[in-house]
């Protein structure tokens, strides 16, 4: 079932071509990761789907009454706005699975980068969205925070069967965990399974051949507790 259908979309902002002839569609129960260099139009594509930008040509078609949860890129809240996390979220239950319930009565301005990311994700999850748009959800997180957030997103997707569109720079995660990758550099350079994408020559010219390193485990680690 197609939730979002993008056909021949181009986007021109400030007389600059941001996106050119993009066609893709997003279905229920799949995770799509958008990768690409800076200025490649990843965030613009997200904003097109949200309707913040109108396509210069082509069209973006969405299913009727589609509920979209959106997590923007990291941002600073204006410190003059007195806002607790509880008030911002309305419903603090979504904090629970993110292990962030303790944040409920914090002031929004007092949150650290990682805490802010979790609150924003909790905000996006409210009202059980059909589509989840996550714009660099792990920006500013440490390695373990990154891992647990990605794990949470994967688990959430499995349970809710929703459609997740994710912008990420973390190629390790992208190559290991997602089924569909979209490499965006003004146009869609390549898309498909991670293996297909990483063998694409255009992709290799953008990210190099060595990155990402896919670690195929063929042995087990024995933990030495004596050390």
């Amino acid at each position: 079932m197609t939730l979002i259908d993008i056909k021949n979309v181009s986007l021109i902002l400030k007389e600059k071509v941001i996106l050119q002839n993009i066609s893709c569609s997003f279905d229920k129960n799949e995770i799509t990761t958008i990768i690409g260099p800076n200025g490649g139009g990843k965030t613009s594509l997200i904003k097109l789907i949200l309707g913040i930008y109108k396509p210069s040509c082509g069209f973006v078609r969405k299913k009727k009454n589609l509920k979209i949860g959106y997590m923007p890129q990291r941002f600073q809240i204006n410190p003059i706005v007195p806002m607790t996390v509880r008030r911002f979220l309305n419903d603090v239950n979504t904090l629970g699975p993110l292990k962030a319930s303790y944040l409920a009565d914090f002031d929004m301005t007092s949150l650290s980068g990682g805490e802010m990311q979790r609150v924003l994700l909790a905000y996006a999850l409210q009202n059980k969205p059909d589509v989840l748009l996550l714009d660099e959800p792990t920006a500013g997180l440490d390695v373990s925070g990154e891992q647990s957030l990605y794990q949470f997103i994967l688990d959430y997707q499995k349970n809710s069967q929703c459609c997740i569109i994710l912008v990420s720079h973390d190629l390790h995660f992208v190559m290991k965990q997602t089924k569909r990758v979209l490499c965006l550099h003004k146009h869609i350079c390549c898309s498909g399974l991670p293996e297909t994408v990483s063998s694409n020559s255009y992709y290799q010219s953008l990210f190099g051949v060595q990155v990402p390193y896919i670690h195929h485990h063929n042995h087990s680690h024995e933990r030495n507790d004596d050390e």
């Binding site: 913040i52 949860g69 959106y70 923007p72």
Partner: peptide
């Protein structure tokens, strides 16, 4: 208006 002030894109969504 408050949501727009916090982040206009969140309001759009």
């Amino acid at each position: 208006w408050i949501l727009i002030a916090i982040h206009p894109d969140l309001a759009f969504a």
